[in-house]
């Protein structure tokens, strides 16, 4: 009898294929792991919102518009928890961080992709990516001990010496300030921004770059008129992703922002962010109505971060479909 090789192979394969019953077990394990994850996520979001509700009920809009943060102690009716300074501080530091990160990061990505010789490319890219591996407390300590004195001795006086410098930037008092927090945040989110923007710029079709150059464009014109416009959606997405990181960064900010609950807008003044306030107030808040107010700030921060990261994911995937058409 001649053996039919293909039939033998098929039978052998079938011998290793899981039976219907054991496939059922696999599915069960995988599905319950996924289900557990879904339940934990829902529980996480749900409990934060649940804990925030009493504060929302008692403080109402004052949570968003008020500027004092006073606990009534035994008389909760006297408690006033206003989050406006934290909200504006978060927005201001994040904006400073994003502006710096986008300008420096876009330049870095362009250089890595287009200007540097290939052996330097890898070194530069790896260096930037390694910045992401440094724990944020290190950035905070560095900002506090190295940069803050620089702000007092050099940066602050320089900004104040500009015409209208005091009115625009505020008078420098301490190094810890919104500006310093924004700057430290910029360095911290730079790896995130560069990782995405490098990919975006690298994915701009070579044929468009050639089209541009073949029309007599200079390298500079090609960057400004062809590469950046073609990648703008993805660069926006990279910026949004970096913004998401900046919004929630806590430890480093606590160390460099000054932690003062004041409604300050001038960059050289100290301030506070949602995340840094939650972290610094936690110890005295447990068990009181202040805890609910902190949860409310946490819920707000969570919503903002999720919203920004949702937008960034959409933008980056829109860029991918734009380029891969």
């Amino acid at each position: 009898m001649t053996s039919n090789t293909s039939t033998d192979l098929r039978q052998a394969a079938e011998g290793h294929r899981p039976s219907a019953a054991s496939r059922g077990v696999y599915e069960y394990v995988v599905l319950s792991a996924a289900g557990l994850f879904a339940i934990i996520s829902l529980y996480f979001v749900g409990s934060i919102v649940w804990q925030a509700l009493p504060a929302i009920r008692h403080q109402g809009l004052y949570l968003l518009t008020g500027t004092s943060w006073v606990s009534g102690g035994a008389t909760p009716a006297l408690s006033k928890f206003g989050g406006l300074s934290m909200i504006t501080g978060t927005i201001e530091t994040s904006l400073i961080a994003i502006v710096i990160a986008v300008v420096v990061g876009t330049g870095t990505s362009l250089a890595i992709n287009l200007l540097l010789p290939s052996w330097m490319r890898t070194i530069a890219a790896t260096t930037v990516e390694l910045l992401a591996a440094i724990p944020s407390v290190v950035y905070g300590v560095w900002g506090m001990l190295v940069l803050a004195p620089l702000v007092i001795s050099t940066v602050g006086p320089f900004l104040n010496s500009l015409p209208g410098g005091n009115a625009v930037f505020g008078t420098v008092v301490a190094g810890q300030s919104l500006l310093l927090a924004g700057f430290v945040l910029a360095i911290m989110v730079l790896p995130t921004y560069v990782a995405i923007s490098r990919e975006v710029i690298g994915a701009v079709p070579h044929e468009l770059i050639e089209a541009s150059l073949s029309l007599g464009a200079t390298r500079w014109q090609t960057i400004w008129k062809t590469i950046l416009p073609t990648g703008r959606v993805g660069l926006l997405g990279a910026g949004a992703l970096a913004l998401g990181r900046a919004l929630g960064e806590t430890v480093a900010v606590v160390l460099v922002i000054g932690q003062v609950n004041q409604l300050n807008f001038r960059p050289l003044q100290p301030g506070v962010t949602l995340a840094s306030w939650i972290a610094s107030q936690w110890g005295e808040a447990i068990g009181s109505d202040q805890m609910n107010a902190l949860f409310a700030l946490g819920a707000l921060l969570m919503a903002a971060s999720l919203g920004v990261s949702f937008i960034s994911t959409r933008l980056v995937s829109r860029q991918r479909s734009l380029v891969n058409r």
Binding site: P205, L208, E210, L215, G216, T218, T226, P229, L322
Partner: peptide, 20 residues
């Protein structure tokens, strides 16, 4: 740049600038 404006080029795949 001057050379390339005196010698134009059309490529294998149509490559108009997609954002323009």
């Amino acid at each position: 740049t001057v050379l390339r404006s005196r010698i134009g080029m059309v490529f294998q795949r149509p490559n108009p600038f997609p954002t323009m």
